[in-house]
């Protein structure tokens, strides 16, 4: 089971879109996929038509009680795609930082919960809130690879700098080194600013930046309106094409990790 976390401390950079697009493509390839929504805004959950406030169990419950595998399985919601399940978020998650503070070991709750699902899924993709707190720390600590979407514009580069500092500090607490991939998103080839920001990204972060770009594509918005994963909504769109290339790259990187 491979766990990827999609994170950036800046909002609106394409985290949820990346989670859904990659999840959809993995499912298309026959993998069993679990999407974990750790954002109190629950956008990922709403995308699949889940009214999270009506649920009896959610990610929130993992934090307030020690959960068995059966209880975690009960928290999962099926989607219209047979290979995609979702662990939904609720608004109550917004209170966790306040109620838990920096309570010892609370950054490892998701890691332990996900470990119990070994064998049930091939890939787990976690969508993070755009705030550094107990939820993001949990998602980062649980992941094998961190995917950092970055909008190709200069303000977003500043946000990325902050995210990289967080990873750097957190690295000291981790046994395994973080593996991360920076993904340039919302690339608009008509604007010079996009191109300059993309070049700057490569200049500063070198090999950790994926060489491709995710372009601006209105099909992402239309897919969300239709509550379909982009590859199901319009498989031939340029956005889906780009995510397909990204997925190929990410999987090749995972294969490199396990090669002797």
């Amino acid at each position: 089971m491979i766990v990827w976390t999609i994170a950036n401390q800046k909002g609106g950079v394409g985290k949820t879109t990346s989670t859904i697009s990659l999840g959809g493509l993995l499912a298309d390839r026959g993998h069993r996929v679990l999407l974990v929504d750790t954002d109190p805004h629950a956008s990922l959950s709403y995308y699949f038509g889940i009214e999270s406030e009506d649920l009896e169990l959610s990610v929130y419950d993992l934090f307030v009680q020690v959960s068995t595998k059966e209880q975690i399985m009960q928290s999962l919601c099926p989607t219209q795609y047979k290979n995609i399940d979702i662990l939904p978020a609720t608004m109550g998650l917004a209170t966790l930082d306040r109620s838990l503070g920096a309570k010892g070991g609370m950054g490892l709750v998701l890691k332990k919960a996900i470990a119990q699902l070994e064998g049930e899924y091939d890939f787990v993709l976690m969508d993070c809130p755009p705030i550094l707190g107990v939820l993001m720390v949990n998602a980062l600590a649980a992941s094998h690879r961190i995917i950092v979407p970055v909008q190709t514009e200069f303000l977003a580069l500043k946000g990325l700098d902050r995210m990289m500092k967080t990873l750097d500090i957190m690295q000291g607490e981790q046994q395994e080194p973080f593996t991360y991939t920076i993904v340039p998103t919302m690339f608009d080839k008509r604007t010079k600013a996009s191109l300059l920001a993309y070049r700057k990204l490569q200049e500063i972060y070198g090999d950790t930046v994926w060489q491709g770009v995710i372009p601006i594509d209105t099909n992402f918005r239309n897919a969300s309106l239709a509550q379909k994963v982009p590859s199901d909504f319009m498989a031939s769109s340029r956005g889906v094409f780009a995510y397909r290339n990204l997925l190929d790259y990410l999987i090749s990187q995972e294969q490199k990790k396990v090669e002797p």
Partner: peptide
């Protein structure tokens, strides 16, 4: 600020 962040993350990632 960095020290505070380190302590915060350390607490979260260390089992009680």
């Amino acid at each position: 600020s960095k020290k505070l962040m380190q302590n915060y993350l350390s607490e979260l990632l260390t089992e009680e």
